[in-house]
Structures are given as structure tokens and as C-alpha cells.
Write a protein that binds this DNA or RNA. Structure first.
Lengths: 206, 206
DNA sequence: TTTGTATTTGACTATATGGTTAAACCATTA
DNA sequence: TAATGGTTTAACCATATAGTCAAATACAAA
């Protein structure tokens, strides 16, 4: 058995499946489309991943893992919470910048498979390298003497500012183009990062 | 011909189609599913709306119209821009609160049909009762002496704060529940409105 | 070279799905 | 009552799609 070639084919499939599933979701995606994108026979999909659902779950699980990796920074208790928030939001913006459809994909599919999401949360909580945003904020209020903010609201606001620009990029592109503003020229992830940082500072310090 | 009965069936179909299309998108939705939801025969769908695409476009067009209606407040030049922004964000939050899947639906489908979106923008610009956010802000800088903010960035931030909480509500519900926080208890649209207003004040005045 | 095993393919099946049609139903009116 | 015309339905068709299978191919070991 050629281990290298084997991995290569499997990865070709995973790459193609990621692409197609992110674009069309579980129901909208066609196995033939995935096979074509991967440049292989459709039967080979079923040889490597028994069926559509199993293939989809692998892609979804990968995406969720990447998503939760981002929270590792909160385990670093030596940094003040504001610094950790800056690093986290910067990382997550870079992450979405690289995979713009990730956010949409995760949000849409959590509804269909909330169990896997719960599992990931539990795993993250038990993992020593990891700590979730909510726990880090609660600790910061107790230990660092952080102002008693509304934690859930703050998290929602933060995720909104970081995710939505990529999620809705097609809307913004068309919207601004129709009004003679070039989204690509006007928008940069660096500017977004700065505005998020300003939001964090205003919320934590005002 | 019974005009009343006619409208009723058509509306039953539109209501069902809205529900199903919002949940599964164009490709993921099944005509049979829409027929079942409306409590009618599948052939009747084709009697009222020739085919799937036409039915979908009607639903999409309705959604877009509702979306653009929200910007009418910006045409009211007698109110200071801050007031108009407060009203607009409050309205749009109420709107998403009523139709939580609207934002996701519009975003997802604009990519497939950007032309209709462009048309709506053009129509809104020509409409005297209507004025778009971007124009209102540009005017405010010229006329009201508003601080020269980065308009596109501000709009993106604002839309993010207002839309994402509803778009990603399933994620937040599961996320907070897994961490013993009840999303429904902790979250209210009033709190969200206040945080958006604070963001507007900080951005326009700081 | 031969043999055995993993990989890959074309051809196939069963089912789901969008769409059509002819007939039935029902309300209005002559 | 009977004719008219819009509305609704069951049955049907053509195609698309997920999944299967036997045969072919590649490739490593004997």
C-alpha cells in the first residue's frame, strides 16, 4: 500500500468536500460535484468515506476544531485580559480572512448537529491548553478586578464584529460597488482589527 | 372566480415557501416539502408559480423589499443623524427579531442573484421616501458637521452588531447553554439596542 | 514473473425530485 | 338545471442523485 498516495487521494477529497460543502451546505451539495472538484470518480468517494453524511461530518468536525483552537490564548493567565482579547480577536479575524465561509458553515450546521458542538465545548473546557472566552472573562472579573460587564452581551457583540464582515462580504461588495465604493480598497482586516480593539477598550474601561 | 379563496391559497403557498426557503435555501428546499407545509398538492404550486425558481424569486424579492424598507428613516432630514441611526438600528433589530433567518437568507442568496440586489439599491436611491445609510452619513458630514469617520467601516460594524446575534442565535443558544447560561434569560433585544447605541455614540463623538 | 492486496473505474440500481397532464371538483351564472 | 371556467388532485414522466458492484488497474512482496 502506498501510504503517501493514499493520503493524497483522501486529502484531495477532503479539500474538495470542504470547498463544496462550505458553499452549498449539506443538502445543497452533490457528491458528483465533490468528485469532479477532486478530479476523481464518484465511487471513490464512497470507497474512502462510506456515504455523504460521514464525509460531511468529517468536514464539519475539522471546521469546528479549527474554530475552537482559536480560544487557546485564553488559557495564558499571565497576560492581562485585554491583551488576550486583542490577540484572540486578531487571530479570529485572520482565520475568517483565510476561510471566509467558515463562519456561515458552522452557524448553519450547528442547528443540524448541536451534539458535536456541545462535545467540542466540553472537550475545550477539560483541555488544559484551552479556556473559553466566557470563563476567561469571569475569572478576570474575580481576579483582575475587571469592571462587571454583561459577559454574554459582550461576547455576542465581539463575535458579531469579527465574523459578520466575512459572512456578509458578498452583500457588502455588491452594496458598496453599487454606490461607487470599492469594498476591497476601502476595507482591510487591519482596520477591522483596530475598530474591534477600540470597541473592547470602550466597553472594558468607560 | 373566488378572489378571496384565490389569495388565500397563494398566501398559504408564499408563507410555506418563505419558511422552507429561509431554512434550506434554494437548492436545499424541496417542492414537496413546501406543498406539505402549505397543506396542498404539489401540482398546485406549479399552477400558481410556474416553477421552483419563480417561486423562490418571489420570496427573495419580498425579503429584499422588507430589508430596504428599513432605510426609509434616513430620508427624514429634519432629525439629527444620531437620532436617525438610533431609530434605524432599533427598527432593524425588531425586524430581525421577527424574522431571525432573514439576514442569513438575504446574505446567502445575494451571491446567486446580485442583479436583483443592485436593482433594489438603485430603486431605493431614486425613491424620495428612501435614502441609503451611506448617503445619509455623507450628507451628515457635509451638512451637520459630523466628525469624518470611516463610513464603510462604520456601516459594516453597525450591520454586524445588529444582524449577527440573530443569524448565529442557534450557536449562541447552544454555546451558552453548555456553559450554564440561558441565552433567552440573559439576552434581550433591548439590551442589544442599548449596546448598539453606545457604539454609535462612542464612534461619532469620541 | 506471479500472486495478493489495495485502489480506481464504468456501468448499474433504486429512489427522490421537479415538472406535466388529464380528469375531477366547485362556484357562479344563464 | 346545465354550461362555463377557475381551482385542485392523483397519476404519471424524465431526469438527477446517492449509493453499489464487478471488473480493471497499480503496486508491492514472494
Amino acid at each position: 500500500m502506498n501510504q503517501l498516495k493514499n493520503i493524497s487521494t483522501e486529502e484531495k477529497i477532503m479539500t474538495a468536500a470542504k470547498q463544496v460543502f462550505m458553499k452549498y451546505g449539506l443538502y445543497g451539495s452533490r457528491m458528483q460535484d465533490i468528485a469532479d472538484t477532486a478530479g476523481i470518480n464518484k465511487a471513490l468517494l464512497h470507497y474512502y468515506f462510506r456515504n455523504k453524511e460521514k464525509l460531511f461530518n468529517r468536514v464539519f468536525e475539522n471546521a469546528l476544531s479549527r474554530f475552537f483552537e482559536q480560544t487557546e490564548v485564553f488559557a495564558n493567565d499571565t497576560l492581562p485580559i485585554k491583551e488576550r482579547l486583542f490577540i484572540y480577536t486578531s487571530n479570529i479575524i485572520d482565520f475568517y480572512s483565510e476561510y471566509p465561509q467558515m463562519s456561515m458553515f458552522i452557524i448553519k450546521e450547528i442547528g443540524n448537529n448541536p451534539e458535536l458542538f456541545k462535545q467540542k465545548i466540553q472537550a475545550a473546557k477539560k483541555n488544559k491548553v484551552n479556556k473559553l472566552l466566557i470563563d476567561a472573562l469571569e475569572d478576570a472579573i474575580k481576579i483582575e478586578g475587571l469592571k462587571k460587564i454583561d459577559i454574554t452581551l459582550f461576547i455576542v457583540n465581539l463575535q458579531s464584529l469579527c465574523s459578520f464582515p466575512f459572512l456578509a462580504s458578498t452583500m457588502f461588495i455588491h452594496s458598496f460597488k453599487a454606490q461607487s465604493k470599492d469594498w476591497y480598497t476601502d476595507f482591510s482586516t487591519e482596520k477591522l482589527k483596530k475598530s474591534v480593539q477600540t470597541f473592547i477598550e470602550n466597553t472594558l474601561e468607560c
